[in-house]
């Protein structure tokens, strides 16, 4: 049982964070709170990918020790972490901030038109 917990607890943490973010997205009325929930959801997904990249047993960072002009060192794949999820998530973080900017622009535009940030009040004013 302990082995099972130790082997899977990273997934559970990401599920917990994802549930918190999901609740923020669909349960909260305030638009800024929705944006915060979206941010937490995205970081949970990124955490899932990064934890997939981990390797047990002495694997180090994906930066090879190497100097210009020297001989090419012999590299074993098991000594380094898996760099592919890192790359995908690096781009995902920057896209996260871009979406954050667009969401904030929309929120400011909505506030100027309706003078409120609560979703139910905006719906009442529309109808």
């Amino acid at each position: 049982m302990l082995d099972f917990i130790m082997a899977k607890y990273n997934y559970w943490i990401y599920i917990i964070l994802m549930m918190i973010g999901f609740y923020g997205m669909i349960g909260k009325n305030n638009l800024v709170k929705k944006i915060i929930g979206m941010n937490i959801f995205q970081t949970a997904i990124i955490l899932f990918f990064i934890s997939i990249a981990c390797k047990k047993g002495g694997a180090t960072l994906p930066i090879i020790e190497y100097s210009h002009g020297g001989e090419h060192p012999v590299v074993h794949a098991a000594d380094y972490l898996n760099p592919l999820p890192h790359v995908l998530m690096l781009t995902a973080i920057v896209v996260m901030v871009a979406t954050l900017g667009v969401a904030i622009a929309i929120v400011i535009r909505l506030y100027r038109d309706y003078k409120t940030l609560e979703e139910d009040e905006i719906l009442r004013k529309i109808s």
Binding site: G101, I104, A105, I108, Y111, R112
Partner: peptide, 9 residues
Amino acid sequence: IFYNIARSG
């Protein structure tokens, strides 16, 4: 993005 947000409203 920052400039447009900060100058609006």
